[in-house]
Amino acid sequence: MTRVVVITGASDGIGAEMARQLAAREGAQVALVLGARGAPLLDTVAGQCQALGAQTLSVAFDAAIQEDCRRLIRAAMTRFGRIDVLINNAGRSAHALFEEVDDLGWYEELMRVNLWGSVWCTQAALPHLKDSRGSIVAVSSLAGLVGVPGRTAYCATKFALSGFFEALRVELAPSGVSVTVAYPGVVATRIRQRGFKARGEEAGVSALKEEKAMPVEECARLILAALARRQREVVMTAPGKLGRWLKLIAPGVVDRMARNAVKDDLQAQ
């Protein structure tokens, strides 16, 4: 039976790489429903997956719009008749000191993309996932575990995302639907350059130190391995794993680790 996997934020970065790896691994045994705002890039990824033998369906949608999320799931069901996996990957970054933000409108927009898009997609897909006893993946961030300076908006969205799916996992345990929360660190993608700055404009540069960024291929592989094992969560870096425990016994050390992750020349911006 062909496995149907819905991936949001699939036009670039982690989402696109997960799609390619699934296609390479499963070929004709997987059908990929790829959702994102950028239709041309989305079609390129779909073509790459088709060349590897996978069936694909590209759906241009905006995770910040509830009806678009519902439409994505309807399109998957209309085309393939089932959903086995939902990977909530769509998201946007941000970096700004809270005191420098005048208009909080983009905070609300970020919450719609990073939290509500995943909630809306999950609500629409849940009856079908229960039918297949399938799996949900939520791509959070280490910023969903530890507060990072300049990332109040982003941390708020990712902490909320993690909390929602932690609770949902417990609710869904009797149904046989697994929920995996992924916590990447700094990954070599363009998400930070495309994020918001203080006035809501596009950042253009990353505010984090990128020298040791994880290759996107490794990040995607770790998420898909956790999905295959139906793990509760996957924390992808040694500092992330250490920081989680240190937060309980030496929170000041974790604060310093968070400050050290931010470029020196951007800490005061």
Rank of each mutant, 00 (worst) to 15 (best):
T2H: 05
I7R: 09
G9C: 09
S11V: 08
D12R: 15
I14T: 06
G15C: 04
G15Q: 03
A19I: 12
A24E: 08
R25A: 13
E26V: 05
A28R: 15
V30P: 11
L34R: 08
A36M: 12
R37H: 02
R37Y: 00
G38M: 04
A39L: 15
P40D: 08
V45M: 08
A46Y: 02
C49E: 01
T56A: 07
A60I: 06
Q66E: 14
C69I: 09
R71E: 00
R71M: 04
R74M: 02
R74N: 05
A76F: 04
M77A: 09
M77R: 15
T78H: 13
R79E: 04
R82W: 03
R82H: 14
D84C: 15
V85Q: 05
V85H: 05
A90L: 10
A90W: 08
A90Q: 08
G91T: 06
A94E: 13
A94N: 10
H95G: 10
V101A: 10
V101W: 05
D102G: 11
D102H: 15
L104H: 14
Y107K: 09
Y107P: 05
L110S: 12
R112T: 02
N114F: 06
W116T: 02
W116R: 07
T122G: 02
Q123W: 05
A125T: 03
H128S: 15
V137W: 03
L142Q: 12
A143C: 15
G144T: 11
G147W: 05
G147N: 12
A153K: 09
Y154I: 12
C155V: 11
C155N: 13
K158I: 13
F159P: 13
G163D: 00
F164K: 07
A167Q: 13
V177M: 11
T180P: 10
A182F: 01
Y183T: 07
Y183F: 15
V187I: 13
T189E: 01
F196H: 12
G204V: 09
V205W: 02
S206P: 11
E210I: 13
E210L: 12
A213T: 13
P215E: 01
V216N: 05
E217K: 13
E218N: 11
A220V: 07
I223P: 06
A225M: 10
A226C: 09
L227N: 10
Q231Y: 01
E233H: 08
V234C: 07
K241P: 11
R244V: 05
W245G: 09
L248D: 02
L248E: 06
I249P: 10
M257H: 07
A258L: 11
A258F: 09
K263R: 15
Q267V: 15
